[in-house]
C-alpha cells in the first residue's frame, strides 16, 4: 500500500522486539536443552535416552493415538460442515443466515472456559457419557468458525463467472459443487483442515472439561504429569510435541490457501487510511 519508504523504527522499538523474541524463545530453548541433557556424577552429558524412554512408554503412545484420532475426526467434520456453511453464506440470503453468522462469531469471541463448562453441563443434561466422542464434538464446534473464515476468504476472491458459465452449460447443483467449486477451493480446504487439526491437537482446557476418565490426550497427559514435577522425560515429550506442531504450522502457513486469509485481512479498507 505505502511500500515506497518506511522510516525505520527508533532503537527502543527494535530493542523491545529483540527482548520480546528472547522472552518467547528463551524458555523454549531451555526446555529443548533439558531434554538432551543428563546430570551424572561428572556433570552434564548429552544423551538421547529421554527420547527413547518417551517412545518406549505405551501410556504416552495411547495418549498420542487419542490425540490423533480426535484431531483427525474433528478436522474432517469441521472442514465439511464449515465449507458448506461458507458456500451458503457466500451465495446470499437463506433462512437462518444471520443466525449462522452470529453464532460463528460468538464461538470465536467466547472465553474458552465458558464454552468448556457450557458443553460439560449440556452433555450432563443429555446424559451423554463423557468419552472421545464428546471431545470430538467439542473440537468440531470450536474449529468450525475458523474453517468458515478460511474458506470464505477464498470464496471472496474466486471468479464468479466460472460458476455462472458452468450453470449456463447446464451443470446441476451437485455437479457444479463437485466439478467446479470444490476443486477451486482445494487450497483453502487443505489450509482449513490443517488449522482445525492443529487447534484440536493443541487444545487443553476444553478437553480437560469434557474428556472421559482414562481417555487422556497428550496435552492432558503432559498437564497431569507436570503437576507431579518436571522430569527430563517430560522435557523430551514436550520437545517432540513442539516440533510436531511447529512442522504442522509451517505446512499450514506455506499452503496457498492460508495466504488468501492473510490477503483478505490486508485488503480490508483500513481505519487509518
Amino acid at each position: 500500500m505505502n511500500e515506497r519508504r518506511r522510516v525505520k523504527a527508533p532503537w527502543f522499538a527494535r530493542a523491545v522486539l529483540i527482548l520480546v523474541l528472547l522472552a518467547l524463545y528463551g524458555p523454549l530453548l531451555v526446555l529443548v536443552a533439558g531434554s538432551f541433557l543428563e546430570s551424572t556424577a561428572t556433570g552434564l552429558v548429552v544423551t538421547g535416552r529421554w527420547f527413547i524412554e518417551v517412545f518406549a512408554d505405551t501410556v504416552l503412545g495411547g495418549a498420542l493415538l487419542n490425540s490423533l484420532i480426535v484431531a483427525f475426526c474433528s478436522a474432517v467434520c469441521a472442514t465439511v460442515l464449515g465449507t458448506g456453511a461458507a458456500i451458503a453464506l457466500h451465495r446470499g440470503p437463506f433462512p437462518g443466515r444471520q443466525v449462522l453468522r452470529g453464532l460463528s462469531f460468538v464461538s470465536l469471541a467466547l472465553p474458552e472456559i465458558v464454552f468448556a463448562l457450557a458443553l460439560l453441563s449440556w452433555f450432563f443434561l443429555l446424559h451423554w457419557h463423557l468419552s472421545l466422542v464428546t471431545v470430538i464434538a467439542a473440537h468440531i464446534t470450536f474449529s468450525l468458525s475458523y474453517v468458515i473464515l478460511t474458506v470464505s476468504a477464498r470464496l471472496s476472491t474466486m471468479d464468479q463467472s466460472l460458476e455462472d458459465a458452468a450453470r449456463d452449460l447446464g451443470a446441476g447443483e451437485w455437479h457444479l459443487l463437485r466439478r467446479v467449486i470444490l476443486p477451486l477451493l482445494k487450497p483453502s480446504l487443505i489450509a482449513a483442515f490443517l488449522l482445525s487439526f492443529l487447534l484440536s491437537f493443541d487444545d487443553f482446557l476444553i478437553t480437560f472439561f469434557v474428556n472421559g476418565v482414562g481417555r487422556d490426550t497428550l496435552p492432558i497427559k503432559l498437564y497431569t504429569s507436570m503437576k507431579m514435577g518436571l522430569t527430563p522425560k517430560l522435557n523430551a515429550l514436550a520437545t517432540l510435541m513442539w516440533l510436531g506442531s511447529a512442522l504442522l504450522i509451517i505446512l499450514a502457513f506455506r499452503s496457498p490457501g492460508f495466504r488468501d486469509v492473510l490477503k483478505a485481512g490486508e485488503d480490508k479498507p483500513g481505519e487509518n487510511e
Binding site: L81, G84, A85, A88, P93, F94, G96
Partner: peptide, 13 residues
C-alpha cells in the same frame, strides 16, 4: 441450496 449447504453447520452450532 443455501439451506442444504449451510443447514448442517447452523444446526450444529
Amino acid at each position: 441450496s443455501g439451506v442444504r449447504l449451510g443447514g448442517p453447520a447452523l444446526a450444529w452450532l
